[in-house]
Computed example of a mutant assay.
Amino acid sequence: MSSRHDLQTRLEHGIAALGLQLPDGAVERLLDYQALLARWNATYNLTAIRDPAEMVSRHLVDSLAILPFVQGETLADLGTGPGLPGIPLAIAAPQRQVLLVDSNGKKVRFLREAIRSLKLENVRAVQSRVEEVEGQFDCITARAFASLQDMLDWGGHLLTNSGIWLAMKGKHPEEELPGVPAGFEVRAIHTLTVPEVGGERHLVVIGRAGDQAGC
């Protein structure tokens, strides 16, 4: 079993490899989140990843890999599960208001406990289907949540006119691109390199058609 010191070293190496600068105390809060997730996971099966070191790489560092692309003052993380990537992004940028959305009750109970125990004053969690969420957000994130078409059909109403949608994918989603609904356009597809994580990682950046803010 990895010690907290080992996990901190792994996390700090990952953050450095991504070229990120996080606020004071962020590493400690990220590790507190990972510890809470591991504790709850033993009972509630919130994630298939059990090994703490793997959690650091595949959950924390993987989530932080998209931080340079996040913009705006408000963010909604759809199908967040146990808070990925929403909680790591909220810890990394505490000035941004973050809404975590999931339809699974046990996952939302965990999210609310994480928000309370980690004192994440910029984060709210709601148990809801995506299509029933109200409001609009400058940035929307979704990690292995659904096809691009389904994501946008269900949640497209949540994106501000100049906002961006960041869809985290494994392999290049070439076959999904024709399904992007009218009114939206793919701005970019970035290949992500995540330290200690094998396999392909891609980030699809989507905006409203005709609006070029946030490219």
Rank of each mutant, 00 (worst) to 15 (best):
M1D: 07
R4Q: 15
H5C: 06
R10Q: 15
L11A: 05
G14I: 02
A17I: 00
A17Q: 15
G19L: 03
Q21Y: 00
Q21S: 14
D24I: 01
D32A: 15
Y33L: 05
Q34V: 12
L36W: 09
L36R: 09
L37D: 04
L37P: 02
A38Q: 10
W40Y: 12
N41L: 04
T43N: 12
N45R: 11
N45Q: 07
L46C: 09
T47Q: 02
R50Y: 05
D51W: 03
D51R: 03
P52V: 13
E54D: 15
V56M: 04
R58W: 08
H59W: 10
L60F: 06
S63L: 05
S63G: 04
I66R: 04
L67I: 01
P68L: 10
P68G: 06
Q71A: 14
G72S: 03
T74G: 11
L75M: 15
D77K: 12
D77L: 09
G79P: 02
T80S: 15
G81N: 08
G81T: 06
P82M: 00
I87R: 10
P88F: 10
P88G: 02
A90T: 05
I91L: 08
A92E: 01
A93C: 11
R96G: 08
R96K: 09
V98H: 13
V98I: 09
L99D: 02
S103L: 06
G105A: 15
K107G: 08
V108R: 06
R109T: 14
L111H: 03
L111R: 02
E113W: 02
I115Q: 06
R116E: 14
L120S: 05
R124Y: 01
R124D: 12
V126F: 11
R129K: 14
R129W: 13
E134H: 13
G135E: 11
Q136M: 07
F137H: 11
I140P: 14
T141W: 11
T141S: 14
A142G: 09
R143T: 08
A144K: 12
F145W: 09
S147I: 03
S147C: 08
D150R: 13
M151H: 08
L152E: 12
L152H: 12
D153N: 13
W154S: 11
L158Y: 12
S162K: 07
I164K: 07
L166M: 13
A167R: 01
M168T: 05
M168V: 11
G170F: 09
H172Q: 10
H172T: 04
P173Q: 10
E174S: 14
E176R: 05
P178N: 00
P181S: 03
A182S: 14
A182K: 14
V186Y: 10
I189G: 03
I189D: 04
V194Q: 04
P195M: 00
P195K: 01
V197T: 13
G199I: 06
E200C: 07
E200M: 05
H202I: 07
H202P: 14
L203Q: 04
V204I: 10
I206E: 09
G207Q: 01
G207D: 01
D211V: 14
Q212W: 12
A213G: 12
A213Y: 12
